[in-house]
Nucleic acid binder design. Structure first.
Lengths: 234, 234
DNA sequence: CGATACTTTGACAACCGTCAACTTTGGTGG
DNA sequence: CCACCAAAGTTGACGGTTGTCAAAGTATCG
């Protein structure tokens, strides 16, 4: 790598524990780092992945955030996930070799680009990498299933409280503030993800604020009573 | 394998195309078959997997059916999936090495038992097996995400029509009748899976019958108007 | 054959989606 | 830098869908 074009390496990346490098020895880390490309920064609203496109790379979020969505038979966008730093994007394409959902940047976002063929080759040689890939997929799989239940069996206020709480936990796992963060997605995105209407999302945010559980300033959320939030989540 | 105790082999199993053997060459198939054990038959209500138990085997359903569920903080059972022949059970445990959900037999059920360590060893040597494992996980992952949306954005009648339609498709993919099948799960199981009350499930089944879309005789369902069912699913 | 689990049907109320109006924010071009 | 307009967000009123409670009917299992 040239001195003129310095990149962050897996060895120095603060997200490595959440990402593919987890539990890799220094030698394995080095080899993984070699196959990983750095993608040019995405601007807000850039579309990274389109459904139907052939799978060539998995992406790891280094900073920023994205939303994944599918377009239903009526042409409406349905949010299926939000991706934060350390998350891998693209696993759902391993099945058909084609992406099945879209991924769009919610803000300026930095990504690592992992060629899927090289990753497969390397996984054969590194058991720890293999295990971590399976672990990440397995987690995503279980989270998806659990989410169905979480949403199905909860009222609108419980869903939103759950959403905020789980975002808070995810930020904390990334070394960021659990009590104060920015919602990079719109209320409509949240509504779609939780299966609610925009109006309901807005009303409940106001209501949680009235209960002194959170404070909302546009996109900014402060959690003032995390216990209250957990209780509100059911 | 002894003559006295003849077992079905992967080579002869009618579910192999849906299962791990998919796209394996004869030699690979042979090797896979060697590591697979046949589990003793489960009776109705037998619990195959308990959350928290260490992951030792993945299971492939050869015949019969199971439900997967988690137990929520209030001790209530939440159904997260139903497993039919050809399905693999246990992927959600790859993350922690411990099972995270329960699996219980809904009827007499025959299973193959695949030691996870041997499977990992074999996957290193057989790219086609590796690809099929990832494909199965990726499919399950995407289905889970899609299900969230399907349920979130649909009314109760649409959810139930969707459920019946998707069961019908799954039976068809297994060479069984798409228009006539037995619901091995209870109404309460369906309700939990779809996020509805038992009463609503019961009412809607009656309503779909009144519309001559299906006929219901206890556990037996006949689909008389598959187009109507698809439309009812939204 | 009895007990228990499962299923169906009815009545009612509440939750939340829809429609509508308005305010605020953010981006674009002059 | 400001003006403008579209997009995003908020708040209110209303009605339908669906959960809850209740009760009766039916299958299943020991």
């Amino acid at each position: 790598m040239s001195e003129k074009n310095p990149h962050i390496h897996c060895q120095d990346c603060s997200m490595s524990e959440l990402c593919l490098p987890h539990h890799l020895d220094p030698q394995g880390l080095e080899r993984l780092d070699t196959i990983i490309q750095r993608h040019k920064p995405l601007h807000k609203r850039d579309v990274l992945i389109r459904a139907g496109a052939p799978l060539k790379w998995l992406y790891a979020v280094r900073s920023g955030s994205l939303k994944s969505y599918i377009i239903d038979e009526h042409g409406r966008e349905q949010i299926i996930d939000f991706h934060l730093p350390g998350d891998l994007v693209g696993f759902d394409a391993l099945s058909t070799g084609q992406h099945r959902s879209f991924a769009q940047s919610l803000e300026t976002t930095m990504l690592c680009e992992i060629p899927i063929d090289s990753l497969d080759d390397l996984a054969v040689q590194l058991p720890a990498l293999r295990r971590q890939m399976l672990r990440l997929m397995s987690d995503e799989l279980f989270n998806g299933k659990q989410l169905v239940n979480t949403l199905n069996n909860r009222t609108a206020p419980q869903r939103l409280a759950f959403f905020l709480y789980s975002l808070s936990q995810r930020f904390a796992a990334r070394g960021l503030s659990a009590s104060s963060f920015r919602l990079t997605m719109t209320r409509a995105d949240i509504a779609s993800y939780l299966g609610l209407s925009v109006e309901t999302v807005s009303r409940i945010l106001s209501s949680l604020q009235d209960q002194s559980i959170i404070r909302v300033e546009q996109k900014l959320v402060h959690i003032d009573n995390i216990t209250g939030l957990m209780e509100a989540a059911g």
